[in-house]
Design a protein around this nucleic acid. Structure first.
Lengths: 344, 344
DNA sequence: TCATATAACGTTGCCGGTATCATTACCGGT
DNA sequence: ACCGGTAATGATACCGGCAACGTTATATGA
């Protein structure tokens, strides 16, 4: 029973020593009971357990972490926690966690802009990994080298690094598929909204865009490529930019669904209808897209989280990985945000 | 540069001692530099900082936690991480975190069914709280007493406990509002899908249902009350149960949106249209509801998370709370899932 | 009967930090 | 030359667990 603000009272919490004293045994004996070792008489064991219950003792994670190797804890590090991609990853990781012996600790500093990017990322990875977990999964990491002796798996990294296992979607192929679809519908003037350029995913999607146009003999116009950063706000900004062109694009390919949602907003603002006035394709297939009727490239984010977690568990258990890189296949999901275009 | 599976190599990670040795100073000096204390010559400080950079040292969270009081870390404990309520709470907490000096650690064991409920909850609260955080927020906790000397704030607890600060919505009022709305539309035969009965929120919503009927002179029929547990699956189950009654209800009040989504599924299955064949009201206003056009009671979940975090920060900073309980007002959001009913 | 095995428990050192106190060096003032 | 004060740094005692090792007591076997 805690009262607010009685800090001078500083009631030390119950330690293993208190338990030992109360039970009239040594610290080690209590420790053995806690860790389920065999060298304890059944009587003593039960006695200690009841004392533990009485005192409400529970082990101190920090102290334990310092001594023992296995922590049964996985760290998941994300730049931000409150956007659809992160949430989907969490769901997948969570599913794998539920099937495993591990628990999950999700770490975030709340907002990227709060601190320098690479520094904080490295700092917290090390913090979590070295300190209290058996390994970490990093989402959209920017750094490419870490000095930790703990397993790391990254999702959607800056660059596929041969030394670190990573998971990513077939971004290029997905992008190509979306473009081929639009081109197949007769679109030639297709706007593109780019993502965070420091991430490999964004670059590959852009390449897909460019290559598809090239392959189909459509000239690439730089004015049709707007630079966003995967957030809804830049989706709005870029949407406005593209739709305000004197010669408006007949279709827009937003390199993720969140930005596509921004484009929906702009369309409403400007009184344009989708797909009547222009077609729209996204990338990700987040849960909202279904309701919006957005045609998009599913990259099975949750599967990526699940896969990353499984790879991590393998590494922890020292089972060699077949491949350092897990590629999750993308798939075009056709809904109602596109339609054929015929030149007038 | 880590290679997979060289565990026997066991390269010890860089400790503060290594830094001290390399820099030719004492451990304490390094510690002072790390913690930004003033008593260090600028020269020494820079020297040490560069060594730290060279060696790639970073502090061990576990070790630090054991000695220092302030950890600048908040723990958020949830039974499960992958359902809309939890996600909304996280968003709110995250927002408060971003504005503060604290970082966030979200803890979950992946699946409630993995372990005994109360036991594991207590275990992990203590683990996180005693060990590495300054305080914790617990979502939908089942236990009512904890033996920790760290601040705890709970969201949607089993029972409002006078000794623990908690946050919850005005569940009763919200439920009443939804019911008055349905009754106002002319509905008399209203089905109710109950939530997790061990939670206070569920009981209050049920009370609201009962009282509203009573106040309006409508007899309560127990066959119209189905018992779910806030999951979509039980929404489906209960929806089927209610809609299969020989005398079908003209409206259903699902005590949360997830279960309402289950009812949508059932409606589709059975070829029933909403609101033409029956009206539907939910509770929560999760993000999906907007797209479904579900009329629901907004309980501003994200605000609850935000508020809980602010209370926690206050307690940590030993600012007395005005009230131990933060009530977040609910609000009926009318969309398109209901319509008037006239007896034939 | 005695030697040895083994069960049961105690002692102790260590992990990687932080906090406190002690120490040193250097300064100006008298 | 001596003193006192202060800035900079060092030495050391913890923190709360875990594990190796040491010590008993009892059982087992010859």
């Amino acid at each position: 029973m805690r009262k607010t603000g009685n800090m001078e009272n500083q009631r030390r919490s119950v330690t293993i020593r208190d338990v030992a004293e109360t039970a009239g045994v040594s610290v080690s004996t209590v420790s053995r009971v806690l860790n389920g070792k065999v060298d304890v008489a059944k009587e003593t064991k039960n006695h200690i357990l009841s004392i533990i219950d009485d005192l409400g003792y529970s082990t101190n994670l920090a102290a334990r972490s310092m001594r023992s190797q296995k922590k049964n804890l996985i760290g998941l590090i994300m730049p931000d926690i409150a956007y659809p991609f992160a949430i989907e990853v969490m769901k997948g990781v969570n599913r794998a966690i539920a099937e495993s012996e591990f628990d999950l600790l999700v770490y975030t500093s709340g907002d990227v802009r709060k601190r320098g990017r690479v520094t904080s990322e490295q700092k917290y990875i090390t913090l979590l990994a070295k300190s209290i977990s058996d390994g970490v999964i990093v989402v959209a990491p920017v750094a490419s080298e870490y000095n930790i002796d703990k397993p790391i798996v990254s999702i959607d990294p800056v660059m596929s690094h041969p030394n670190y296992p990573s998971v990513h979607a077939t971004n290029y192929e997905g992008s190509r598929a979306a473009m081929e679809y639009l081109i197949g519908l007769g679109h030639k003037r297709i706007g593109f909204i780019n993502g965070r350029t420091e991430l490999e995913s964004a670059n590959r999607r852009l390449s897909g865009y460019r290559d598809a146009l090239k392959k189909n003999g459509i000239p690439i116009k730089e004015e049709l490529i707007a630079s966003g950063d995967y957030t809804t706000e830049t989706g709005v900004k870029c949407g406005r930019q593209l739709l305000s062109l004197k010669n408006r694009p007949t279709a827009i390919f937003a390199s993720n669904d969140q930005m596509a949602m921004g484009v929906y907003q702009v369309a409403e603002e400007m009184g344009l209808r989708i797909p009547e006035d222009f077609s729209l394709v996204g990338f990700d297939n987040i849960s909202e897209s279904k309701y919006l009727g957005l045609t998009t490239v599913d990259q099975f984010i949750s599967e990526q989280g699940y896969g990353a977690m499984q790879m991590l568990i393998q590494i922890i258990n020292e089972v060699p990985l077949e491949k350092q890189t897990l590629k999750v296949q993308t798939q075009l999901v056709v809904r109602s945000s596109c339609r054929e275009y015929h030149e007038s």
